[in-house]
């Protein structure tokens, strides 16, 4: 219990330091704060932050002692006379043995602390929801095989529950990382890595590909949406439903334009002729707050600009510029935004 109290005290200090840092940061707009490993929102990320909190203060202690000795000797032993010859001390075995043992002890303590937290990390219970996380240049595909859902860039999870992730890649190596919810796991072609994600409170958590993966590595972002079980269930039902039929004239024209253009070669919209597998599944496109690797907000003008010339917004993206008239673009935007 006392050890627990000790750690809690460390956290308070860490929070003060973080708060001081945060105060210097211009007010965030899209997110509550930086996607920092130091503001954990899951059990795993909290265990890692707690370990860091202890390590941080050990590091500060080592830093202060060693730099202190250095600064002291630099000030204290300045040359006084040009002819001064100090005592010619060649060494001292007992002293040197002592300062060989001292770092060895500190390092041993760190190892034990780490092994202790590694034992408790990522104990994945059976019978949890499973999601296949598939890295693509430069977006994320999320498949829920048990629920029959495929979506992109926004990973929905129920609050409190641990969700098992199977991490894969179809092209180069990526790395799945949502700092507030835990450490990163690489997505490597031919290797399936398993990890788990969980959020203690509802919210949107920002993440990003962490392994350099080519031209648009910077805009391969992730949003994790953690919602209360009922809201999650509602989301699941919505995602399982077939794509909404276009309700107004523009959307209907947009659907026609979409189905008769190159779009269907890459994108799937369930229940329509569009069955492409290269780009993100668009069946419930408008239910997502962002698009193109969670880089742009799903808004009519953003979407129109994107369809008009994807290379202008995200140079290097694999989505080609498709020859469409302005009317067609606006209609396709209307159609896509109807796919709730």
């Amino acid at each position: 219990m006392s050890a627990q109290g000790h750690i809690v005290r460390h956290h308070r200090w860490l929070s003060v330091v973080l708060l001081a840092i945060a105060l210097l940061i211009p007010t965030a707009t899209a997110f509550a704060g930086p996607p920092s490993p130091l503001t954990p929102a899951s059990t795993e990320a909290t265990i890692i932050r707690d370990l860091y909190a202890v390590v941080f203060w050990i590091a500060v202690g080592v830093f202060v002692i060693v730099e202190g000795l250095l600064v002291y000797s630099v000030i204290r032993f300045r040359r006084q006379h040009p002819e001064e010859v100090p005592v010619q001390l060649h060494g001292s075995t007992p002293v040197e043995v002592a300062w060989t043992i001292a770092p060895a002890i500190i390092v041993a303590v760190l190892m034990l602390l780490t092994l202790r937290s590694m034992r408790t990390l990522y104990q994945i219970p059976s019978g949890t929801i499973q999601v296949e996380v598939i890295g693509h240049q430069w977006w994320w595909e999320f498949r829920y095989p048990d629920l029959g859902i495929t979506t992109a860039n926004e990973l929905h999870i129920p609050v409190g529950e641990m969700v098992r992730l199977r991490i894969e890649s179809v092209d180069v190596i990526h790395s799945f990382w949502v700092p507030e919810l835990g450490g990163k796991t690489d997505a490597i072609p031919g290797h399936t890595n398993t990890t788990a994600i969980q959020a203690m409170k509802a919210g949107r958590y920002h993440g990003q590909c962490a392994e350099f993966c080519g031209a648009q590595h910077a805009q391969m972002r992730i949003e994790v949406v953690a919602s209360p079980p009922a809201a999650f269930q509602q989301w699941v039902e919505n995602q399982k439903a077939a794509a909404a039929a276009p309700s107004d004239e523009a959307a209907r024209r947009g659907q026609q334009a979409f189905m008769s253009s190159a779009c269907i070669g890459c994108h799937t919209i369930a229940g329509t002729p569009a069955q492409g597998k290269i780009g993100p599944d668009l069946t419930h496109f408008a239910s997502r707050r962002t698009f193109a690797g969670a880089s742009f907000e799903t808004a009519p003008q953003n979407l129109a600009a994107w369809i008009r010339d994807p290379q202008a917004l995200k140079p290097g993206t694999l989505m080609p510029k498709v020859d469409l008239s302005e009317e067609q673009i606006n209609d396709i935007v209307a159609y896509l935004l109807s796919l709730k």
Binding site: Y52, V66, E67, S175, W177, G183
Partner: peptide, 27 residues
């Protein structure tokens, strides 16, 4: 060298801590 390398050495030990590395690796 001495004063700056001390800092690099300390953060190096921190990075060897596997779970902490899972967070800050590639950052």
């Amino acid at each position: 060298f001495l004063s700056m390398f001390i800092i690099g050495g300390i953060t190096g030990v921190m990075l060897a801590i596997v779970p902490f590395d899972w967070q800050v690796h590639d950052t």
